[in-house]
């Protein structure tokens, strides 16, 4: 175990999740090391999206949601705080469907800052341009920053959403199937971006794309029927799967 694995950015400890009487996740424990990309894979309905949405407490809105166990961000239990919005500033999220708001590109970018900080708009705009550059989007949009964000292509919208998530400088970013609505080229651009981002941040990604998990992630957890069937370093998991289940799943022989 190296130094980074000893102090995980996110530590999920014996988490059980229920929606009413419906048990969705059973005894899930995962350590997500700092500056790594952790992929959650598994068939639909296995609980991986529920798990990722519990890390920034987006499930708090769901009626009947109940979590036992602990989710720790840098050692602090995130479910003890009464105000989930404070947590969500520290843990960014990018969704399956690109979700820029129906305002201009620049307004999308500076909204997180104007919402939480006081400061000169010109300064906010500068920061926004930096983040757009970091997401390799600035060159494509620099002449239309004040045009509606909806005029961008799907892939550009998703990169805008990533750039927007970066505005609050989160230490962890959650990606819930960020490429499932995108074409292969946009997907590759975003994968490159993910690898770039992990230099300074910790990333958790839910994906249905086995190749994507193999290409970008350092660690992988294979969810099946609400439990983790197998988890560990991606290389090991994909090349020498321990369970027959996972082997079938990654080779596509799953029924």
């Amino acid at each position: 175990m190296n130094e980074e694995e000893k102090n995980p950015a996110i530590k999920i400890e014996n988490v059980n999740i229920r929606y009413g009487d419906n048990r969705v996740l059973n005894d899930v424990s995962i350590d997500v090391p700092k500056n790594s990309i952790y992929a959650f894979i598994g068939p639909s309905g296995c609980g991986k999206t529920t798990m990722i949405r519990s890390i920034n407490r987006m499930n708090d809105f769901v009626a009947g949601f109940k979590l036992t166990g602990r989710v720790l961000l840098n050692g602090t239990d995130i479910y003890t705080d009464k105000k989930p919005q404070v947590l969500r500033k520290k843990i960014g999220m990018v969704f399956q469907q690109p979700n820029p708001l129906p305002v201009s590109i620049m307004q999308n970018m500076i909204l997180p800052l104007t919402e939480h900080y006081r400061g000169a708009i010109s300064h906010f705009r500068e920061l926004a341009e930096q983040k757009l550059k970091a997401c390799a989007l600035y060159g494509e949009v620099k002449d239309k920053l004040d045009k509606p964000a909806f005029e961008l292509s799907g892939g550009q919208q998703q990169r805008l959403c990533i750039a927007r998530a970066l505005m609050l400088e989160p230490s962890v970013i959650l990606f819930d199937e960020p490429c499932s609505a995108l074409d292969p080229i946009s997907t590759h651009t975003i994968e490159d971006l993910l690898i770039e981002l992990k230099k300074e941040r910790t990333i958790i990604i839910v994906t249905h794309n086995m190749e994507q998990a193999r290409r970008v992630s350092d660690y992988t957890a294979f969810f099946y029927n609400g439990v983790i069937a197998e988890a560990g370093q991606t290389n090991k998991l994909f090349f020498t799967p321990e369970t027959e289940l996972l082997e079938k799943y990654i080779t596509g022989k799953f029924s």
Binding site: M58, Q85, V86, R88, G92, N99, P102, E115, H116, R164
Partner: peptide
């Protein structure tokens, strides 16, 4: 108002009241 717009607001740390004011009503 599409759910994904509201989620965008919550994900950037807005409270419910701010989401209503800044996202739901304008949209």
């Amino acid at each position: 108002v599409p759910k994904r717009f509201k989620e965008a607001g919550y994900a950037m740390g807005m409270t419910r009241f701010r989401v209503i004011l800044k996202i739901i009503l304008p949209t």
